[in-house]
Each structure stands twice: as C-alpha cells, then as structure tokens.
Design a protein around this nucleic acid. Structure first.
Lengths: 147, 147
DNA sequence: GCTTGATCTAGCCCGCGCTCTAGGTCCTAG
DNA sequence: CTAGGACCTAGAGCGCGGGCTAGATCAAGC
C-alpha cells in the first residue's frame, strides 16, 4: 500500500514510484506511461529488478515543465522535439531557445485572442444583466431572427 | 462563380450563400454544415427551391459569436444548449445569463492559467538567453539528470 | 502462505471537432 | 448547349490526447 518509502533494495534514495509521480505532477499514471511511449522523457526511466519504473526528482521537475507546456497548448510532438534536443546534449541551445521563443509568441497570441473573446462575452453578460434589471430586451437574440 | 448577388428569384434581399457566410465568418463550408447538423443555429436555415442554404445577416452575427465562444473554449454541446435556450423564446434569460457567466469565469480561469504558464516559459527563455550570452549553463537541463 | 493493492505490457477505444469523400444537383457564363 | 464551379446529402475518416481493459506480476502486511 505504502510502497517503498526509502528502504527497499531496488529503489535509490528518492526513487519515486509511478503512483507518487502521478500525485506529484497531477498527471495520471496512464498519462505517464503514455508520455514515456511518446518519448517525452529526458532519459530512459530505470526499472527495479521487478520491472517497475523508478523516477528521480529531476524527472518530476521535467514533467512539471511538460505540464505547463501542455497546458499552454504545446502539442506532444513539439515537446518531443524539445526533449530530443535536450537529450542530444549541449550545443543546440540556440535551437532550444528558438523553440521556446516561438511557443512564447504562440502563448501571447492566444492570450490576446482570449482577451478579445472575453470582452465580447463580458459584453453579452452585461447586456443580459441590464435586460434582467430593466425589463428591456435590447440587444438580445430573438428566437427567430427578424426578417 | 459570383452566385446570386442580389437578384435571383429564390434569394431574399441580403440572402447569403454558404460560401459567402464561410468567408464572412472564417468558418469552413464544412464547419457550417456541421454546425447545422449539431443544432447550433437559432432557426432552420431556409433553402432555395434548388435546396441551397440561404443565410441572413443575423445568422452571420450569431455565427461570429459562436466563433468567439468556440475560440474561448466553449464546447459545441454548450453552444447547443445556449442556442436551444434562445430558440425556446423569451422567459429563460436568467439561464442564458448563468451559462454566459459560467463561461466568463472559465475564460478568466484559463487566462490566469495561461499567464502562469507564460511566466514559467518566459523564465526558461530568459535562462537560455543568459546562457547563450554568458556561456554559463546554470539552470539548463542536463542530457542525463545528475543522479 | 495468502491476500491485497500497486504496477507491468500491449493494445484497443473514446470524445471532440471538424474534414474529406463519394456521388450527385444546380445554375451561370460563354 | 456545354462547361465548370458552387452547392447538396450521407457518412466515413482523422488527429489529438489520453483512457481503459485484460491478464499477469510484484511486493508488503498479516
């Protein structure tokens, strides 16, 4: 139930089970195995003699970053590219930077877009609130557009 | 090629073909037919005697709002609910307002989330920029996490 | 030893939001 | 009259991001 909390022969100091990593990152156990199949990790995740994954803190840190990248809309394929750059060692920092910069631009663009949508939506909300207070129906959608 | 631009017997004044509506809304022709199947419209779209859709300006206005709702992450199913409320006529404005308010909350939450992600990502960008200027490697991911 | 829960691999399945195809019809220009 | 583009319906397909299951193994506590 409590798994190995620091004493089993297989797990290194601070070796984490998949369940603990799931808790720590907010990702599901399924998602973690999926990410591994998809090549998103920075290294091969080692196994115990029994075949179970043993994660390190640095894996969790990376997964947390992956979570942010995903939340902000980066596709799995792009995260995979980024991971591949890191895995292939020093020397490609400019490429990594370019990838991150492009994503930053994308996120800013999406923020602008969302803000524009928010304005429209908030405008609608205000219109309905006024209608409900005043009893007017100005600016509301009719059931059948007036023709 | 130019379709009916205001003179054919079937099309009302300002009756728009699906292609024109696609242009006007940025949605694809396929998407417009899909939206119709999904019940997102506020009315039955009338047809010419030849069976072609004839849209009005009000349909375009509604579609533009739908576009904003979609862009801001509202699922098709929720837009369908909203459309159904409008279609069922006056009297349910509180429900419409509640739906819009909830979506507004969702959008604001997503904005906060995105901003938080952006901070993390921008931090990474800055770290890489510093590394490339200084030649240091502090804070960069190693190819293999140091164990 | 036995039970119990966490984990394993392999692989199929799903919801979403369109997109595209097939096979036709319409209709306007030349 | 003919060509060709826009449009029609019905329905299959797809990319994405996981979710879920089956059937087995592993490991900890009693």
């Amino acid at each position: 139930m409590s798994e190995d909390a620091g004493g089993s022969p297989d797990a290194d100091v601070d070796g984490l089970s998949i369940g603990r990593v799931a808790e720590a990152t907010g990702l599901s156990v399924h998602a973690l195995r999926f990410f591994e199949r998809e090549g998103l990790f920075l290294r091969e995740i080692p196994r115990t003699s029994g075949g179970r994954r043993v994660y390190a803190r640095t894996d969790v840190d990376w997964l947390i970053l992956c979570g942010r990248l995903r939340l902000s809309g980066m596709p799995i394929a792009t995260i995979r590219e980024f991971a591949a750059l890191i895995r292939s060692g020093p020397g490609n920092e400019r490429e990594r930077l370019a990838l991150l910069q492009e994503h930053e631009r994308d996120v800013r663009a999406k923020l602008d877009e969302l803000n524009a949508c928010l304005e429209v939506i908030h405008g609608k909300v205000v219109t309905y609130e006024q209608h409900l207070n005043d009893g007017t129906a100005a600016g509301l959608w009719a059931p059948q557009p007036t023709r």
